[in-house]
């Protein structure tokens, strides 16, 4: 019973994902030219980015915690969130590329959002470089956590603000759009919002495992 109480969100994550798959394939979607059935990718491709933003954002919170308290555990947590966040970013990029091929006609278009993401990923690549090139534990933690905060802010500006200032193939970009402009009807919302929660929980769970393994490795290296 105790374990069930502690793990209820994992079961919720599983049930929500099962619902996402079921309703994602069976649910009603608007009939639109070019998009056709691929509009269902909304539940799988777009949710990857939402999960990534959640994970990277949480990592910034822990980076700030590290800088405030200099507790190495916060550094481990922040690092784990970035790592899983980048897994979801890669998934989002690859699935987006596939979707683009069949709707926009090319694997990679010069869409501002795509180029922004490419720059953003390079910024995070440098984060990994910073971490792996510093032998001193404290120095590595301090510099990479400061870097992480700036990286997140720049990344968010790159993917949320800059694409809106120009024309973009992505829906809801270019000009000043609201969510209602997404070709999202109420049937799709019923799947889309639970799908965001489901994928985010999955990302959180995987990160959680990673953090615990990192902490174990840290404890073992301490005791040696």
């Amino acid at each position: 019973m105790e374990t069930l109480k502690k793990n209820y969100w994992k079961i919720a994550c599983m049930l929500l994902l099962i619902y996402t798959i079921w309703a994602g394939f069976m649910g009603k979607v608007p009939r639109q030219a070019i998009l056709n059935e691929t509009v269902r990718n909304l539940y799988f491709h777009v949710t990857m980015w939402f999960t990534m933003i959640f994970l990277l954002g949480t990592s910034v919170y822990h980076s700030i915690q590290y800088l405030r308290k200099s507790d190495i555990k916060s550094d481990l947590i922040s690092n784990a969130y970035v790592e899983t966040g980048l897994v979801f970013a890669t998934l989002g990029l690859v699935t987006g590329s596939l979707w683009a091929k069949f709707t926009w006609g090319d694997w990679w278009t010069n869409d501002p959002k795509l180029n922004s993401v490419a720059i953003g990923l390079l910024i995070y690549l440098a984060y990994g470089l910073v971490r792996s090139s510093m032998p001193d534990e404290q120095q590595k933690a301090r510099i990479s956590n400061v870097y992480n905060i700036f990286a997140f802010v720049i990344f968010m500006i790159l993917i949320w603000i800059l694409p809106r200032m120009t024309d973009s193939l992505h829906p809801g970009n270019g000009g000043n759009p609201g969510f209602s402009k997404y070709d999202l009807d109420s049937n799709m919302r019923l799947v889309f919002y639970p799908a965001i929660i489901a994928w985010t929980l999955l990302g959180y769970w995987i990160t959680n495992l990673r953090i615990r393994i990192k902490k174990l490795a840290y404890l073992i290296s301490e005791n040696e």
Binding site: I18, F25, M26, I213
Partner: peptide, 26 residues
């Protein structure tokens, strides 16, 4: 379409069983 859903759901459940096991091991 049910065949596709069944395949994807099987994969999903498999991944979840694996994740629960991993969790237990940690």
């Amino acid at each position: 379409i049910y065949v596709v859903i069944a395949v994807v759901l099987l994969i999903l459940v498999g991944i979840f069983i694996y994740l629960f096991n991993l969790d237990k091991k940690v």
